[in-house]
Write a protein that binds this DNA or RNA. Sequence first.
RNA 1: GUGGAUGUAGCUCAGCUGGUUAGAGUACCAGAUUGUGGCUCUGGGGGUCGUGGGUUCAAAUCCCAUCAUCCACCCCA
Length: 418
Amino acid sequence: MLTTRPRGTADILPGQVEHWQYIEDMAVRVCREYGYREIRTPIFEHTELFVRGVGESTDIVEKEMYTFQDRGERSITLRPEGTASVVRAYLENKLYAGPQPVKAYYIGPMFRYDRPQAGRYRQFHQFGVEVFGAQQPAVDAEVMALAMDFYGRLGLNDLELHINSLGCPTCRIVVREKLQQFFKPVLGELCPNCQSRYARNPLRILDCKSTRCTELALEAPTTVDCLCPECRTHFEQVQQYMLDLGIPYVLDKQLVRGLDYYTHTAFEIMSPDIGAQSSVGGGGRYNGLIEACGGPPTPGIGFALGLERILLTLQKRGKLPNIQAGPVVFLVAVGDRAVRESFSLLARLRAAGVAADMDYQGRSLKAQMKYAGKLGVRYAVIIGEDELKRGSVMLRDMDAGGQREIPAGEVIGALKDN
RNA sequence: GUGGAUGUAGCUCAGCUGGUUAGAGUACCAGAUUGUGGCUCUGGGGGUCGUGGGUUCAAAUCCCAUCAUCCACCCCA
């Protein structure tokens, strides 16, 4: 136990962490260009926030939350998703009093007590954005465009974007009734799960992956069939904007998102080659959420993308860049005096902005060279008795294999550009 | 929460139906080359066989439990 990490968590080691930084840097860059600013909220919140924000009847709240009592008897929960926290911060800090809309993004760990499998972990990471205070369909399109742009810049140009509209609460009531009417005669044929969904949330039957349910759902009325005029117009305009932007998408009438708060536009991005957990991101509009959390009626929309799943996709497709993160220069010193000289040269190189390192194991020249090779440095600077006598150093190009002796005073200048 | 597969050296794995000091490749360290990495050769260190019980004269091998990993269901990122 002492030496094993908790189930469903991962250590991100040197060599892998560079890939995370690559993805995160890309997210930051894209967000900046789209006018989104970073927000950092606590990793834990009062349990109540998620119960209200995510929805009591969701799987997340019913069985996946990391909840505990703190020493002050408060019920605390490790955040299972990002939106609720951002909404809370928006309200608590009265950001609604400032210029609207507020466009924010976050990158960080989320926690769900699930059984781990390919692409699913108990601590996982999301990159998400939220827009509060804008109800225009162009915003829906912008948010989806941002997500697709982000994937595209990572080299994932062919991910499938599925979109749907769930309508407003009024439309919901209509679909609900129509669905119940539709499924009533075949209720017995549905999977046990969907039989209970029938009463509670018949929408979810559309989303069921059990083959019989899927077959039956093919002919079922869908949310888009039941949209009120305003919702219909909104959705049509969203699609028009997507067309204008040239972003391909699939109209997926079966798409129903699992979190209760979604209204209007809902979308999901799929990656076909990372196993059963193929969704690499999803989001949608949640016009009632902010009010439900005690704020003024405020439209909202956002998405969350799973960084582990993106990483898996990049890995599967060989799209991860080779990143040389180690030092560029390695100092090879032979003899006590050379070690002392090298140590101070090391400090001067670093001060000049050159990523440099040297041996601290008292290794032989040969072993130091070997180690330098393993580190993958571009240059080795060799200092021994001969060089000390001549006031020079041996500068070796580890890739080319050649080396030349230069005056000690010129080393920093020669390496500075690296 | 449910089901299946798997846990032997840092890593990838072998170890037949239970039988002496548990092996290979690779990685690591050193030497061959007393001032030079990547190739080759030689040598060396490193394993409570996931953990805990049980069966047996004898368990890495059989049984049970437990933990973990992987995959799938469920759900989602």
